[in-house]
Design a protein around this nucleic acid. Structure first.
Length: 487
RNA sequence: GGCGCCAUGGUGCAAUGGUUAGCACAUCGCCCUUUCAAGGCGGUAAUACGGGUUCGACUCCCGUUGGCGCUACCA
């Protein structure tokens, strides 16, 4: 047994788009694995494609990882700053004869689909193209160089035999080398392709486990070949299944919100998001679902990763969020609510000081009804501000009875006369009035709720009244009277 | 087209070759109830299809179908 060194993993996004849910889950799996194993997670930005690369997106990706709560241990490294290393590797491969210069124009060699579209007979022969430049003699190469032709460097794939590698999720794999084309390592621009840079970096950074999307599975044999050609031991690969949209196609912009930041904006809790993401393509093997981050770290194992592509289920995500909104220790939740109220311009500093207990209690009675953070500032607004309006639907539903203006006025008086402001006192006062007036308590309760919080949705009335306080309740009741008259 | 991967309710996951195929989301109903939630209880709903192997197959093998991926001087 080799001395067990701690695993080193990396998350390697390319800045061609924002951090989407698929990338987020890959990052999460890497992070969970590293934390579980006591290893290291490296962040590397794969920005070798100058055409598509958008440097300004890097900040967004970093912000997404921070919001998700996935701090990396090393990096970020940028491939664009390590170009010399890739060129040197390509040169050494060239020197060894494991690679060769290619003088073809890029368009001449643009993918199998283009090549196959010929006559029927030609199809089979054209399958795995092998670049003719591979067989050029030294003299011919010298001649091409003299002509000043631009050259790319291609890997000279073995023409027979098989290539094997180990995948922690998909098991041992092997492919026929005849299926592997002479892929480009260094473009004619001198910039490396993904295949080269990823292997060179993973070797240089001593990566032990490559956890990435299954879309890379088919290309892994090429990389296994490169490890061999570079005299480096291959790492353990772990390809995780893809996340698809509800229409079973790859997640993309047309599926609506796919960027992590949009979920942050919508008011999801990062930990709920993590819990949801972790269970998409991985399970503990049991039925447990509510797993806090410590639990996830504790149980995470590559052996629990599924091989089946999964569909992003927004409903389940929301369910997880509502679970966290309800089950989190109140002190953990408060900062999020505070931030939400600040965002809505409703925050008051005393809720962090003298009235902290009031704030905690109010949030506590509100939270069973919340699903997203903004709920605290929208339908719960009246709990944090005197400036609120009456929901038209609620008015329509609970302010129908023509006796209501009169009744609510009397209720305000009765409440005003109370010497003690507590749940039972309010309860008794309201019910006594209902009985004296010959109406159901429910009529008064529902109408009062709309009057004091403006909505049909709120915690139980007397708890609401306690939290609002006597003065507010009475004032709001009287303020509502002119509006209660049914048309 | 070629090569490869995958296949359990609508969705996400369970089930040493032997269970009435389990859990959760969604959905429907009931309970609770002062609105809305939450919570509790229950219902509808799945092993893609066809062949094998086996006393016995969701599980192993083959084929078909379907989905996905790769097949770029993208990553």
């Amino acid at each position: 047994m080799a001395p067990a060194s701690k695993p080193r993993v990396r998350f390697a996004p390319s800045p061609t788009g924002y951090l989407h849910v698929g990338g987020a889950r890959t990052a999460l799996f890497n992070w969970l694995f590293a934390r579980h194993e006591g290893g290291t997670m490296i962040l590397r930005i794969e920005d070798t494609d100058v055409e598509r690369n958008k440097p300004e997106l890097v900040d967004g990706i970093l912000a997404g990882l921070r919001w998700l709560g996935l701090p990396w241990d090393e990096g970020p490294y940028f491939q664009s700053q390590r170009l010399e290393m890739y060129r040197a590797a390509a040169e050494s491969l060239l020197a060894k004869g494991a690679a060769f210069p290619c003088y073809c124009k890029a368009v001449q060699y643009a993918g199998a689909d283009a090549i196959v579209e010929g006559e029927e007979g030609a199809e089979k022969a054209a399958r795995i193209p092998s670049c003719p430049c591979r067989d050029l003699t030294p003299a011919e190469r010298a001649e091409k160089d003299r002509q000043g032709l631009t050259r790319a460097i291609r890997f000279a794939s073995p023409r027979s035999g098989v290539t094997r590698f180990e995948d922690a999720v998909f098991g041992p794999r092997e492919v026929q080398n005849s299926e592997i084309e002479d892929f480009v390592l260094l473009r004619s621009s001198g910039l490396p392709t993904y295949q080269l840079s990823v292997v060179v970096d993973d070797i240089d950074m001593r990566i032990t486990h490559i956890i990435r999307g299954a879309d890379h599975l088919s290309n892994t044999p090429k990389q296994a070949l490169l490890y061999e050609a570079l005299d480096a031991p291959p790492p353990i690969f772990a390809h995780v299944p893809l996340i698809l949209g509800p229409d079973r196609t790859r997640l993309s912009k047309r599926h609506g919100a796919t960027s992590v930041s949009s979920y942050a904006d919508e008011g999801f809790l990062p930990e709920a998001f993590r819990n949801f993401l972790a269970l998409l393509g991985w399970s503990t093997g049991s039925d447990e679902e509510f797993l806090r981050t410590m639990d996830l770290i504790d149980r995470f194992s590559l052996s629990g990763v599924s091989r089946t592509n999964g569909i992003f289920d927004r409903d389940k995500l929301e369910w997880f969020n509502s679970q966290y909104l309800q089950k989190l220790p109140i002190d953990e939740l408060l900062p999020y609510v505070k931030a939400e109220l600040q965002r809505a311009g409703l925050w008051r500093e005393e809720w962090d000081g003298a009235e902290r207990e009031w704030f905690a209690h109010t949030v506590d009675i509100l939270r069973p009804r919340t699903r997203l953070l903004p709920d605290f500032a929208t339908w719960s607004r009246a709990f944090f501000s005197d400036d609120f309006d009456y929901d038209p639907e609620a008015r329509k539903k609970f302010w129908k009875d023509p006796k209501l203006p009169d009744l609510l006025g009397k209720l305000a008086d009765a409440l005003d006369a109370l010497s003690d402001w507590n749940h039972d006192a309010c309860d008794h006062a309201l019910r006594a009035l209902a009985e004296a007036e010959g109406v159901k308590a429910g009529l008064l309760i529902n109408a009062t709720r709309v009057a004091i919080v403006g909505r049909a949705v709120a915690p139980p009335l007397f708890e609401t009244m306690l939290v609002l306080g006597k003065l507010r309740v009475i004032a709001r009741l009287r303020r509502a009277l002119p509006f209660v008259s049914p048309e």
